[in-house]
Design a protein around this nucleic acid. Structure first.
Lengths: 205, 205
DNA sequence: GTGCAGCTGTGATTTCTGTCACATTGTGAG
DNA sequence: CTCACAATGTGACAGAAATCACAGCTGCAC
């Protein structure tokens, strides 16, 4: 797998270092990549697949924050990595996923030596921060029906498909809501001709 | 005002540059320092006072994210500054406030040259990100009563006082709720002996 | 086929929150 | 003191969402 195509902005020297020091790892769909409280030893760059970043509640509730796709990196792991701290979030492979693990110890050095790495890190902070902001906006200012629409759109964007293979229960989990509520809201959306419902699949109109 | 005492971790060379290039500004209590959509020309280091960072809704709703006190800096302004982008948030002086404005153009240079600045920036990202995470936790997983308790505690921590000078309306605004709801919840807290209510003032027990 | 497990639909009920309407109380200006 | 205004208390009601209880349906294993 040629990871250099996925990070075309990286400069030659940086590529060399990564080539030498980083480890490529695979995760199966559904596998937990990182849990709350776990010690972070490396920063993950996503090569292929999707990683779901979410928060977990003391009593089992989940709450989706965002997805990471190819070419993206986990801001939390970078921040924690730099300070060698523990994770505050959960990361799970949504599909079969390939990541490049860059050891913590390299971070400072890369930041200093390679402009393209420095910019990549800053860019990552920026976009994850923005994403978190829009998440806050959503739960602070919008009801479940609007949050559901936003969720479906975002999901469609990520997968580039108009048909989402999701059960109502999965959606409810991501939004920290309950299955019945989601079912009812989806029905209403269907009546407004925004979606068509099938078993394990939602078609966006 | 001797700002060097507030940022003791800064190295001599860095202090010199800041001394030369930065501008000190004052804001009166209640003054808006930055609004949504505004172009960012500098990063703000807080010397004195409190700055409230919040999100504003299209129809006037507010939502408090966090406060910045002396020795802290606005992560959003740093991120935006580095990329010369516009702000997504509102910043308001809660008290009379002194800040040190560092021009955008310096950011890259400071990051490269001064380890203590680099670490300060990383530290700022880290703590703001964490703070945002705990905000998300709060609205995602907790009801208004718990959010109110969390809010009061956080406020007490910030001001280091057990008596909070707040009207119910102010609290409701910060939590994007309504005055009546807050009044009732506070009454319940008083019955549980967690607080004592006075006019324009809440005493934590 | 039979049976089972996992989705989905729906009604009834309850809790939480927001909203409206109004009464009451404290405080400062004049 | 009096008036005006801001802050607070409270009841009634409406809507959103969670929860409980079931029923029907689909698809897979055997």
């Amino acid at each position: 797998m040629d990871w250099k195509k996925i990070f075309p902005q990286f400069e030659p020297g940086l590529i060399e270092v990564i080539e030498k020091e980083a480890v490529q790892r695979s995760f199966k769909a559904g596998e937990i990549i990182m849990r709350t409280g776990q010690y972070i030893k490396s920063t993950a760059l996503v090569l292929q697949g999707q990683i779901k970043i979410y928060r977990e509640n003391h009593d089992g509730g989940e709450f989706l924050m965002y997805y990471l796709g190819p070419g993206q990196a986990c801001a939390v792991s970078m921040i924690c990595a730099i300070q060698s701290e523990t994770s505050e979030i959960m990361a799970k492979a949504e599909e079969d996923t390939e990541v490049l693990m860059i050891p913590v110890q390299l971070m400072d050095d890369l930041m200093n030596k390679y402009k393209s790495w420095y910019q990549f890190v800053i860019q990552t902070y920026r976009s994850r921060f923005d994403e978190l902001l829009s998440v806050v906006d959503n739960i602070a200012f919008h009801n479940m029906d609007e949050r559901l629409e936003f969720y479906l759109k975002r999901h469609a964007d990520k997968t580039r498909k108009k048909t989402l293979e999701l059960s109502h229960q999965q959606i409810a989990d991501d939004l920290n809501s309950s299955r019945e509520v989601i079912s009812r809201l989806l029905k209403k959306m269907e009546q407004r001709n925004l979606v068509k419902l099938h078993r394990n699949m939602i078609e966006l109109m």
